[in-house]
Design a protein around this nucleic acid. Structure first.
Lengths: 214, 214
DNA sequence: CTATGTGAACAGCTTCACAGCG
DNA sequence: CGCTGTGAAGCTGTTCACATAG
């Protein structure tokens, strides 16, 4: 169906890492980079880097390597981050407010331009940051998504509310969801990326516990 | 070397998801669960669930399924979350403060009991939450890690400072690091788990862009 | 009859090794 | 030479299918 058929998921995930590294190299003024250098910086083999990039096209120059600026542009286009994306944040609790303050999203072209919450005590308050966004009630969701051309939603609500809100987001016309709630959203009709912060800590404690228990 | 040899990494990651689901089932008062039910809730096959659990022992009861309370205890022990873990947070910027307020960590037994920052304007301030932790200077790191028995560190500092701080954490005696900075920490002598929030958004935009670019 | 645990088949991802280009 | 792009080999993880237990 789409061109992304046959491309390993892991390769796509690494594409983001390559881009991150390339941006860093650009800052250092490096003009070209080999698959070995790129791999070394990310703890990958050179073959892995070449194969990953080759899934998406022929970006390299034999004998030279990859031109940093060129490859940056190419990967941005592939990831879709050569354009800007409007994003809605649902949930203005601790985590939600933090994500709003987090600069990293905007730097990559993901603009959180609306915030929603169900809690009547929070709705109407301003979140004091640069833009000074006012927290809106969920009833405004589909209107705002449509008029503001919002395509992505970030879910920062409690686990109990997540499923319901996720459905509302899809209903409103959002095309992708980044889910911070500790629940699996199954059978969604749009792409969902999940981030469970505690899962990562558990992976660490597993490694330290060594698995040597009965 | 350790018992975890031969166990696929993905299986360990899913263990966290099984635990999450089991805790939810416990709350609903469900006594037993089959591999099919568990898999369905997480969008996995029943075979996957059985094989994953079988890596760690024989927890099931043929004809019955898995006893929810029993399996919960078992997985907690395997993941090392049957004990409490003391955690240090480095970086009291927006993201750091948010993580401190985030309830999820404590619920799983990860107690953030100390906060550090390099910025002299932040050091000494109290972060107004339940415990009211005071932000400490980095110079206190190794002393506090030792006296407070801190084993994990959460890195919420800018990319430019991450490597340096990571080394200081290891030096201070921390045994595992959860890295929120958008850099790859290579050649670390302790386990590192990485969370890059923008990477997940890029995965979504890739799927929506469809990869159909030149 | 239901549901686990598991060897065997299969699929997917990574690494190797080398042809080919600058 | 140096370095990419790529079939082929190798490895890891997933699914199948069935023997086994309650």
């Amino acid at each position: 169906m789409s061109k992304s058929d046959g491309i390993p998921g892991p390769a796509v995930r690494r594409l983001s890492l390559y881009l991150r590294q390339l941006e860093s190299l650009l800052g250092q003024g490096k003009r070209t980079v080999s698959s070995r250098e790129l791999g070394e910086a990310l703890s990958l083999t050179d073959a892995q880097v070449r194969k990953d990039l080759a899934y998406f096209g022929q970006f390299g120059h034999p004998g030279i390597g990859y031109r940093v600026d060129e490859l940056t542009v190419r990967i941005r286009r592939i990831l879709g981050t050569d354009r800007e994306w409007n994003v809605a944040l649902i949930g203005a609790g601790n985590l939600g407010r933090a994500l709003l303050c987090y600069r990293g999203f905007a730097k990559k072209g993901f603009n959180v331009i609306a915030v929603f919450d169900t809690d009547k005590k929070i709705v109407g308050t301003k979140i004091d940051l640069q833009e000074g966004l006012t927290v809106l009630p969920m009833s405004k969701l589909s209107e705002v998504v449509r008029t503001q051309n919002i395509r992505l939603g970030i879910l920062a609500v409690p686990a109990t509310a997540a499923r319901q809100v996720a459905d509302e987001l899809v209903e409103a016309g959002v095309q992708g969801i980044l889910n911070f709630a500790p629940v699996t959203l199954k059978n969604m009709t749009c792409p969902v990326a999940a981030v469970d912060l505690t899962v990562h800590l558990e992976q660490l404690s597993f490694q330290l516990a060594g698995g040597d228990n009965t």
